[in-house]
Simulated assay, not measured.
Amino acid sequence: MTDTSTPESSVSAATSSEAAASEETAEETKKSETVTSESDLFKQSEVAADYIEGLLDILDYDGDIDELISGGRPMVEVVGGRLQPLVGQRGATLEALQELTRLAIFRATGSPSRLLLDIGGYRASRRKELAAVARNAVEKVKEHGDPVRLEPMSAFERKCVHDVVNAISGVQSESEGVEPSRRIVVRAAD
């Protein structure tokens, strides 16, 4: 039997099959990257937990350490009594410990980390306080129409406020200033 296909149709068929194979390979690569990513996040939380456990031992503090992954980022929570000194005033010591732990992860893995460290449930309770602050600012903006400037906050605190404000229609928030005096301004939406 003779081949009646033209060279162009053969090239087109080959190109189509190569494209399909390339799409399958890209999909498989994406899946393996997701698995690797989860694996990397778990490794980061393990390194962080080991680092924090070492610090607790050195400081002679007792605490249970939970490792988890939430929202695509590794988290370590330390629960126990007598942990307030590790949180510090307005979470300043906690923020410093988080940065040190991120450096320990970078040193062990060679990759930067978005680790979130919580001690004694501080971040959960602070999140509730910040939600109330955000709702209060929104009420003032809606009542008076003038922008409301909040006190300077850490990146974690600003994100909590932005999340609450962005969920409410008719208002918007933006950060202004430079660390450590960076703050949020809540105003009526354009």
Score class of each variant (00 low, 15 high):
I105V: 09
C160W: 03
G91L: 01
R123P: 07
S181D: 13
A96L: 09
G54P: 03
A137L: 06
A21C: 05
S173R: 10
Q172Y: 12
I65K: 02
G177E: 02
S22G: 13
E8H: 10
V133S: 00
L116T: 06
L86A: 04
A49C: 00
E38H: 12
V76C: 01
S111P: 09
S5C: 13
C160N: 05
Q84F: 10
P180M: 06
V164C: 06
R82W: 12
A188V: 15
S39C: 07
E151W: 03
S22F: 15
Y61G: 09
D3A: 01
A189K: 14
V165L: 03
E33T: 15
D50E: 11
D118R: 01
E27A: 15
A96S: 12
R90N: 15
D64F: 09
L41P: 01
A21G: 15
S175W: 11
G63Y: 02
G71H: 00
P7L: 04
P85W: 06
A21W: 11
T29S: 07
K128R: 14
E143I: 11
E129D: 12
S32K: 15
D118C: 06
K128Q: 15
L41C: 04
L116I: 14
L55V: 14
T34V: 10
A131W: 06
A189M: 08
V133T: 09
I105L: 03
G81P: 14
E151C: 00
C160L: 03
K140I: 08
F42D: 13
Y61D: 09
G121R: 08
E176K: 13
E129G: 10
R102C: 02
S169A: 11
R158V: 00
H162W: 02
S10W: 13
L83C: 02
V164G: 00
Y61L: 10
K142Y: 07
V186C: 02
S173W: 00
D163K: 09
G120P: 14
K159Q: 06
G177H: 06
P147M: 02
L117D: 07
P74L: 04
T15S: 11
A108P: 06
S12H: 05
R158G: 05
N166S: 02
G63W: 03
K31W: 10
A13T: 07
S22N: 11
R187A: 02
P85T: 03
Y122F: 07
R102I: 04
A92F: 09
L103M: 12
R187V: 07
T29R: 09
T4G: 13
G91H: 06
V164M: 01
V47M: 06
S16W: 07
